[in-house]
Design a protein around this nucleic acid. Sequence first.
DNA 1: TAACGCGCGATATGATGTAACAAGCGAATG
DNA 2: CATTCGCTTGTTACATCATATCGCGCGTTA
Lengths: 171, 171
Amino acid sequence: MNAGFPSLDHDHKRCVADAMARADEACDARGVRLTPLRRRVLQALAESHSPLGAYEIVERLKKTREPVPAMSVYRALDFLLAEGLAHRIESQNAFLACIHGHETDEIVLFLLCERCKRVAEVTSGALGRDLSQATRGVGFSAKARVLEVSGLCNACKKTEARVKQSQGISR
Amino acid sequence: MNAGFPSLDHDHKRCVADAMARADEACDARGVRLTPLRRRVLQALAESHSPLGAYEIVERLKKTREPVPAMSVYRALDFLLAEGLAHRIESQNAFLACIHGHETDEIVLFLLCERCKRVAEVTSGALGRDLSQATRGVGFSAKARVLEVSGLCNACKKTEARVKQSQGISR
DNA sequence: TAACGCGCGATATGATGTAACAAGCGAATG
DNA sequence: CATTCGCTTGTTACATCATATCGCGCGTTA
């Protein structure tokens, strides 16, 4: 298990740069092209602390010198998803830059904070094994190894608790 | 763990009737109203062997004496989801009648067959514990206890294997 | 240079979901 | 019984998310 929510004061520019460098490398190794457009879409995702909808990406790129039509954003996203450079968060119709490569036998868990919208990408071997076991029982072979779980991150949990308490006092 | 894919020859009318009876009872117990419209939407879901999109429900009800506008279907779905009588399959933008009540500390897994589109709803205590453990490590409290896993059911796995084999021969 | 694949622009359309407001209807209240 | 109230439903409009299709430009390759 690893990689929880990013600390609030981390060097985000640095982690964006790292992600882009890894993407360049991965595409190079696979002989696929990380074109400027695809790069810009990936960068927009990486810069965001929360998943972005396709049209949110369009909006962000509209503010740059070269706006990008929605259609092209979707095409870039298709590519990024296919190459494993980004993930789709089904429950939000939104997209997220992938922060780390994934081992084949582990399962990826996206922890979605309902309040601050941040996402933690964690992996768990135990979960993967139990999942295999649970599904094998009914003769099912799991293909997608990505699960989405919504809830509250630590910081927001504390905030909510404070809010509730103060409401209790004021009543 | 329980409840795999329904056998191909089960008495589906019976299982629809059971589901409706349980829904009636549950609503009664909670003092909420399973109105005719809501009942029709739930029944449409229960009768289907695979998740239905909202507009698929509209289509099915259009064939009955009283068509139902899309807006009303959505409202009925909101109700059914809130009461736990139906689930939303995020990855498919589709809905499914719930086939059994859920224990609070267990996790619900939807196994989605990519080929035949059928869904198995299974629960697992072990998975729930794994999930708690994995998320606690990063200070996250999971709220949604529903996970979607896509893959192939037993029957389709065999079919695919046959197809592959015959392709191999023909080449 | 000609043929080709691929990425991309542009326009249109489809699929999914929500907002807002009015009308119906039954239960509680006077 | 009439009134009021809240919940359910109808209706229209709109917002959001995603795909289809056609054609152009550009680099590769024959």
